[in-house]
Design a protein around this nucleic acid. Sequence first.
DNA 1: CCTGGGATTTTCT
DNA 2: GAAAATCCCAGGA
Length: 189
Amino acid sequence: MPKFQRLKANFYQQNTFKLAKALLGKYLIRKIGKKILIGKIVEVEAYYGPQDKASHASKGKTERTKIMFDKEGVAYIYLIYGMYHCLNIVTEKKDFPAAILIRALEPIKNIKTKTNGPGKLCRAFKISKNLNGENLISSKKLYLAQKSKEKIKNSQIVKAKRIGVDYAGHYKHKLWRYYIKNNSFVSKK
DNA sequence: CCTGGGATTTTCT
DNA sequence: GAAAATCCCAGGA
């Protein structure tokens, strides 16, 4: 197994869109007891600012969305449609609502079910609300890592419209979804 | 191939 | 009581 380097605080301290692209090709690591699950991030979506109608935060700060207003490097996990959890990484400084939704992973280790969709990857990783607000910089259960020197080239990154945001006015046209070109684990093309 | 509807529960109005 | 950053399957073309 090659070396995994945990991503440190300074990785999260960059602009949401740069960070979204930087997340592609990184590894999500989840520890459950002695078991360790690893998946490679192949698809993400950015949700940025109070103006973005696709973002929960556009309706203001509530009990549910307040984590998006927290500082960068925290996990924001919520239940959608009653059945599926979604994993987000909070970005930007405190009181600015922004997050990156992890949409798809490529299974690397100990993953049995498919992970090509935000609901499915949370099921596979046993991510639920008990990890909501987990700090990815210091957590032992859930964090991000990269293989040494590995980097995704800009030419490998595809920009696309976000999914499931038809109600978001002109924001629905924003190309805030990023995925790795020709990767079969991406949920949609 | 593509489209449409149902599942199911938390959160906010 | 309605909506929600989804997924899966059935049915028709």
